[in-house]
Amino acid sequence: MTSLAADTRVATADPGTRLVAKARWRWPEFLLWLFAIALIWIAPSRYLLFNEIVILALLALSIDLVLGFAGIVTLGQGAFFGLGAYTAGLMAKHGMGTFPWSDPLLGLVGAAIVAGFVGFLSSFLVLRGSDLTRLMVTLGVALIVQELGNKLDWITGGADGLQGVMPAPILGLFDFDIYGRNAYLYSLCTLFVLFLIARALVNSPFGLSLRAIKGNLTRARAIGIPVERRLVVIYTVGAAYAGIAGALLAQTTQFVSLDVLSFERSADALLILVFGGVGTLYGALIGAIAFKAMYDVLASATPEYWGFWLGLALVLLVLFARGGIMGLMAALMERFGRRRMGDA
């Protein structure tokens, strides 16, 4: 903490006020969350889709913490997502719908612990080497977990998937109904709470030190930031977030398939984040909405060639629209002479 104070004192006289000012809520943020709640009445028939969007947004958010704020390029966040999904799924399945094990909230906690623990262990590998080795390690860990999920079929159900996932009612009160209304609300509330934590985290001195590391590792180390420790912490937190996203999927769909561990999921989540805008937190949410909307339009026509459009969008995005949707919005805001909202 002392190192950080030294870091920001150069810029302003009082880093505390500056941090607090940056962390203030702005009106578009309220609007977005109110809109998410209002969806219950606006489009009551699409709960399943909304639920999916929320889960994707949470997974993308977990990547944003790792990539957007600490600069770790990861292709393997799906490993933690899958671990979380299987943990929550197994807990709900073997808990037989009774309190300690089948409780959804405890399922989330369990998923976060398992995914976070594996994230913690693998973070030491991620610390080593360059971007290339990080890519290899994150991808490699994801492939190992995927292979394990396939081989340990007496636990995971293998290619058939994990069936009979029956979580108890949320808080003992709200059952998962077939329309998915409670499921959507449950996921949305989880996302909101985790979002608040993430928001507080990145606007804290800790978050600033992460950005210093991302900006220039050597200088960050020179001013006394414990680089390794910070990266281990954020990677572990990111893994736990991804695990909770997976747990939400397992609980709300009451099924876990090997598909939760697939590379495509990691890649999709990364794309969502990039579509939305890296390093903004809201990019993950907006990206997830945009991604699903795009999927609805393009994949309903030709589902098997969806990958082509996705790839094309990525290439164009990298070439022409750095910063994603949030970047474009920030540019628009700038043009109108307003304060930037995305710079959270």
């Binding site: 390029v73 292709l75 794309l271 060639y305 082509f308 790839g311 995005l317």
Partner: peptide
């Protein structure tokens, strides 16, 4: 166009190419 961009951009760009090539070959 991508040599001076950062590694994340390069990864995303080449992933995009992979997805396009996979779908194109499939087609």
């Amino acid at each position: 166009r991508l040599y001076d961009k950062n590694h994340l951009d390069q990864v995303l760009f080449s992933l995009g190419l992979i997805f396009m090539s996979v779908a194109a070959v499939d087609y």
